[in-house]
Design a protein around this nucleic acid. Sequence first.
DNA 1: ACTTGGCACTCACGGCGGCCGAGTGCCAGG
DNA 2: CCTGGCACTCGGCCGCCGTGAGTGCCAAGT
Lengths: 339, 339
Amino acid sequence: MLEERRLEVLRAIVEDFVLSNEPVGSKTLAERHALGVSPATVRNDMSALEEEGYITQPHTSAGRIPTDKGYRLFVDRLSGVKPLSRAERRAIQSFLEGAVDLDDVVRRSVRLLAQLTRQVAVVQYPSLSSSSVRHIEIVTLNPNRLLLVLITDTGRVEQRVVDIPTPVDDGVVGELRGLLNGSLRGRRVVDATEVAADLPETVRPDLRPHLTTLTTVVLEALLERQEERVALAGTANLTRSSVDFADSLRFILEALEEQVVLLKLIGSARETGTVTVRIGRETDVDALRSTSVIATGYGLGPAVLGGMGVVGPMRMDYPGTMAAVRAVAKYVGELLGAD
Amino acid sequence: MLEERRLEVLRAIVEDFVLSNEPVGSKTLAERHALGVSPATVRNDMSALEEEGYITQPHTSAGRIPTDKGYRLFVDRLSGVKPLSRAERRAIQSFLEGAVDLDDVVRRSVRLLAQLTRQVAVVQYPSLSSSSVRHIEIVTLNPNRLLLVLITDTGRVEQRVVDIPTPVDDGVVGELRGLLNGSLRGRRVVDATEVAADLPETVRPDLRPHLTTLTTVVLEALLERQEERVALAGTANLTRSSVDFADSLRFILEALEEQVVLLKLIGSARETGTVTVRIGRETDVDALRSTSVIATGYGLGPAVLGGMGVVGPMRMDYPGTMAAVRAVAKYVGELLGAD
DNA sequence: ACTTGGCACTCACGGCGGCCGAGTGCCAGG
DNA sequence: CCTGGCACTCGGCCGCCGTGAGTGCCAAGT
């Protein structure tokens, strides 16, 4: 009972602060939320909450604001996931259904997510690792140079220019194409790597060097970049937050330009089936210590294709943002699964 | 002589202001730059320059800062193009030479340009319009759905998923592939559109509907997106500028997220063979009225592949930035031309 | 054992006034 | 046409003070 009201007070503080961005005091709190107790009581509760480290005061004699720990408790125990409005659902659908190809799906998703949440959105391109090889095409650019095009069943297309030490004619190219497709088509990417490594051993000696070169490149394309790229949108939303935020704005922008950082942020959320929230320092990125990251994986069932999420100030509408991330991920997963 | 010194004063003002970001006064000006005249004389010149609209004072009794018109005169008549240091040239080379494919070239270029200039960099993906069709590949995803892959001699790969109303078997797909490649391969994109439009008329009736569908998609892919995409980097550099800039930061970021705006900015510079500078309102984008855009086309000789450039504050090192843009464009042009 | 009203205290914030100094315009003399 | 001198302007800075929101503590009430 005592404990219960304290939590209620914490929730009220978080909700108020998210809306107003101003330290919230005992009086306004007791008024706005029907707590049924006097400001003095609220003060006692706040005092206790502060001692436990859930809230803090920016300076003596000002209201309280939640700490990282306070937000964490709020997210874990005090907030549900706000359902999206009908209009928002419709927006998701109409925004995504015009996509012409895989890249377009990703670019539209990231813009959509940025608009819905009014935060910075990040969407990882679907990774190759859980897809299979659909087709390998080799195009002769000139006798010493080939273009290798790799198509997966998720609709992803990878391309590589390959320099060949000794010239090849079209017949040989045809043979190579046949060999690669014959042994790799239909394989899942993880399996393909093993098969490809052994392939050169089994063929006519004169094809071997070329095939070795090609399989090396294929493997590179499959492994090295398999989950490398991300799309970003909504950086302008960073300026929406309060001004004190502006000091760190530069560092946040710099961090967001690092693909590695972004991958780390959403990559770890990929595997869990649910929406994960990392608050403040939990992001493990120093420049983002005053932000929160809400991320999830997308893709149907066990076949996770990639991750997506948003980056925003700690002072954020967690229920609403979590709902938006979940909804977009679900929809994109279905969209890609249908292909 | 009189005229000449006035211009010298303008140049000194621009250079000083670019370095210090503070209104520059007559005294410091006469000291720092060896003008050989007294502050009072400089004052008279400044007064004249102000009357002609080249400089202005932010408030009474403060130094002068250049106006749009002043920067324009500076760029047109007073500044050369600062040659790059040897280290910078080497940096360009080593940064770009590891690129694995076309997308990689673009992404590396844009980062490179952002680093060199410490501004926001924009690079347009090479457009299809001046390239020719290298190969068209059709892959069966399922009987009602094909994946069309279009490869150009610039190494660009476009992909499209095509829904087919009535199922097709592999034999038909092979025929279609042959027809498309037979008639389009080697054509320049602009010519290909005409040929493709007539193609269905000339074939067996049973292939016609499918071929119509496919050519429609090919044409779409060729025309609609031919110069659509751009890469962006270095937005964190926007925060480098003075704080008054911060007010408009949000609008600048928003403008930079609009592909259309970016294309407009660098698109118009594509065709001219030189580096073009647009200052302040000359950008024709309201949100960018306090910025300048330095852009150029890249690609060898008459075959312009795309545009690239940087966006930065009006208060910018024009000679240095122009040199960097020109150098990167030249190098990228050569790199792509070699393919 | 909680809750509540009262009360003294703290401190960020905003407005006010005065000083300072960089910078200007003008003018008379070289 | 240049120059030194001079009076003037005005934004920025600093210190001061009043105000008010908010707090912590305490004693009384339930």
